[in-house]
Write a protein that binds this DNA or RNA. Structure first.
Length: 330
DNA sequence: TGGATTTGACCGGA
DNA sequence: TCCGGTCAAATCCA
């Protein structure tokens, strides 16, 4: 649970610093764009790129320290505490009857329910094959639904402490859809595919909370309705389609300027290119502060600045900026 | 035989 | 008090 006083103080103290750094980053990016357009010397561009990276680095540092500070007041979100009573159940096996009622009342379930923070939902006509190995640990009949909800955890939960879980709910729609809700991050190392990437040239303008992904056999569509924000007012909304056959990016809706265009990697198709899909990101907490460094990778060249954002880490992005139900706010 | 699945019970939160 | 998330013994299966 997030401590409201900590969140407020964090916002008060760091908000201005973060906003300032982001504004500077945007201005530097604009400068870089001009340098490129005017074909200025490489040295000038590199200097600007260095400043941009420094600015983003400052933002990350501020947010990172904020996370750590906030952790003091956060209750651990996860947690499965192993049941202290499990040993009491060992003796039950002495009875030959199968699936019998234990002699001593079963007290398993000594756990702390995780909050719904840091979760996102995908809906598809078929169960999603996301490249991770999952182990089913429960099934539950849910009120007002005709199909049970299935609960899965990462198979690496115990050997690597991976806390990722997902819930799969078959809907009553016609045709039936599978709503898969992912919770937590995969921290396991040998159990995941390389996340697909979106390479963008104006990273500060994105709110993953507003993304909508649609994928078909021939194309992947990402639409984004950017919540209004003074800083991002120049980048309200867009829709892009990546044509995987022709490897072209088609922008739809408002014409994007050169600095706003997104370059979609073909790897995006790893998501689930065979079926329509929507993806909604949400996060109401900031309990995970250990993923910031993994959420971004920045590379620079003389011609463009690329900031890779793994789609699989969109919630990570949310961690950094605390995306909530109300949208992106800094 | 070991890993995966099933399923009833337990527990926390609303 | 009810609902939903998780546990863990029992069971299944390759």
């Amino acid at each position: 649970m997030e401590c409201s006083s900590c969140s407020e103080s964090l916002l008060m103290i760091d908000r201005k610093m973060v906003v300032g750094e982001l504004i500077e980053g945007r201005e530097l990016t604009n400068q870089l764009q001009l340098l490129i357009q005017n074909q200025k010397p490489l040295v000038e561009m590199e200097t600007t790129v260095t400043k941009i990276l420094q600015s983003f680095g400052n933002v990350l540092s501020i947010l990172d320290s904020g996370e750590k500070t906030g952790d003091v007041c956060h209750s651990p979100m996860t947690t499965q505490t192993s049941s202290p009573f499990s040993d009491d159940l060992k003796s039950v096996d002495s009875n030959n009857d199968k699936r019998k009622i234990p002699a001593v009342k079963d007290r398993r379930g000594g756990y702390k329910r995780r909050k719904s923070a840091n979760s996102w939902t995908r809906i598809s006509p078929n169960p999603i094959e996301d490249g991770h190995a999952w182990r089913k640990y429960g099934q539950k009949e849910i009120l007002n639904t005709s199909h049970p909800r299935n609960y899965f955890r990462c198979t690496r939960k115990f050997d690597q402490g991976c806390q990722a879980t997902k819930q799969v709910q078959k809907t009553d729609e016609d045709p039936p859809m599978y709503q898969t809700t992912y919770m937590g991050h995969h921290t396991c190392t040998d159990n995941q595919l390389k996340p697909p990437q979106v390479i963008l040239e104006n990273p500060t303008s994105l709110s993953p909370n507003s993304f909508n992904f649609e994928s078909t056999k021939s194309s992947t569509i990402i639409s984004c309705t950017q919540d209004y924000h003074p800083i991002f007012s120049s980048f309200p909304s867009f829709k892009l389609e990546y044509d995987e056959q022709n490897h072209k990016t088609i922008s739809m809706g408002r014409q994007l300027s050169s600095s706003e265009q997104f370059i979609l990697s073909p790897e995006l198709s790893l998501l689930d290119s065979s079926e329509p899909m929507t993806m909604l990101a949400s996060s109401s907490g900031s309990d995970h502060g250990d993923v910031i460094s993994g959420a971004y990778s920045c590379t620079t060249s003389s011609e463009k600045l690329e900031v890779d954002l793994g789609l699989g880490s969109i919630d990570d992005f949310g961690d950094v900026f605390s995306f909530g139900e109300e949208g992106f706010s800094i």
